[in-house]
Simulated scan of single mutants.
Amino acid sequence: MVLLTTKTMQMTAVFITFGGLVTSLITTFLPLWKTMNSDLNEMENWYSGLWHMCLYTEEVGMQCKSYDSVLGLPSDLQISRVLMLLSVFTGGLALLVAIPGLDGVHVCLDRFGKRRKFLILAGVLSWVSGITTLAPVSVVAYTTVVEFWDKGFPDVMPRWEYGEAMFSGWFGGLALLLGGTLFFIAVCMADYDLKMATSVTNSSLRTRQYRKTEVL
């Protein structure tokens, strides 16, 4: 296909990685990781995130408060904070590293090997960012399910359920993994283009040498 070029694949990888990074960044600070609604008071909705606990009522609206102590948080939330921040950092670094390796950027144009290394490193960092996004979201999802079906709590006690941030976190992590994969595909396509160009050049040189020999 004409549209499926190395440059197009590179730009697609950058676009998807950027989208995954923005989604992961929003997920990190969105106080909607878990939600809870009490049957005793259906007008109140509780929301829990990595940094805030929020209460929504129709009379007042949304009221959020930071956690009083980091040490008092469950271990899954503490680990999730670190991993999500690491994900945002590595995702942003992946985009910065990818810029010198893009075909449209006039940097290292005479050094194909160096540009190739930039794109490979960007792919690795994007993968790391995706994994460090999926891991905390999946851990919190697992602990939420375990606590929801825990028979040790009375049935009348409200339970935490999945919030919207859980799904956005999964989407952002998968997008980062896909972006990293596309960086690797772009590198393979560039290697193939270089191989074909070298093959055509060598073939032309052989043809010219043959013609010279034929004239002599």
Results as ranks from 00 to 15, higher is better:
residue 129 S to H: 05
residue 129 S to L: 07
residue 130 G to V: 11
residue 130 G to Q: 08
residue 131 I to Y: 04
residue 133 T to I: 07
residue 135 A to T: 14
residue 135 A to D: 06
residue 139 V to G: 00
residue 143 T to K: 11
residue 144 T to H: 04
residue 144 T to W: 08
residue 148 F to I: 05
residue 148 F to E: 11
residue 148 F to A: 14
residue 149 W to N: 15
residue 151 K to C: 13
residue 151 K to T: 09
residue 152 G to C: 06
residue 153 F to T: 13
residue 154 P to G: 10
residue 154 P to D: 06
residue 156 V to D: 14
residue 157 M to P: 08
residue 158 P to C: 04
residue 161 E to C: 04
residue 162 Y to E: 03
residue 162 Y to C: 00
residue 164 E to M: 08
residue 164 E to S: 15
residue 165 A to V: 02
residue 166 M to D: 03
residue 168 S to T: 15
residue 169 G to S: 13
residue 170 W to P: 04
residue 171 F to G: 11
residue 171 F to K: 03
residue 173 G to P: 01
residue 175 A to E: 03
residue 175 A to Y: 00
residue 176 L to W: 04
residue 176 L to V: 12
residue 177 L to D: 05
residue 179 G to E: 03
residue 179 G to T: 01
residue 180 G to M: 00
residue 181 T to V: 08
residue 182 L to I: 11
residue 184 F to N: 09
residue 185 I to D: 00
residue 186 A to Y: 00
residue 186 A to Q: 02
residue 186 A to M: 04
residue 188 C to D: 13
residue 190 A to E: 04
residue 190 A to G: 01
residue 191 D to W: 02
residue 193 D to G: 03
residue 193 D to W: 04
residue 194 L to C: 11
residue 195 K to D: 14
residue 195 K to F: 13
residue 196 M to F: 14
residue 197 A to I: 11
residue 199 S to H: 11
residue 200 V to P: 04
residue 200 V to E: 12
residue 201 T to F: 15
residue 203 S to H: 09
residue 204 S to R: 10
residue 205 L to V: 13
residue 206 R to G: 07
residue 208 R to C: 07
residue 208 R to N: 06
residue 208 R to T: 08
residue 209 Q to S: 12
residue 212 K to E: 15
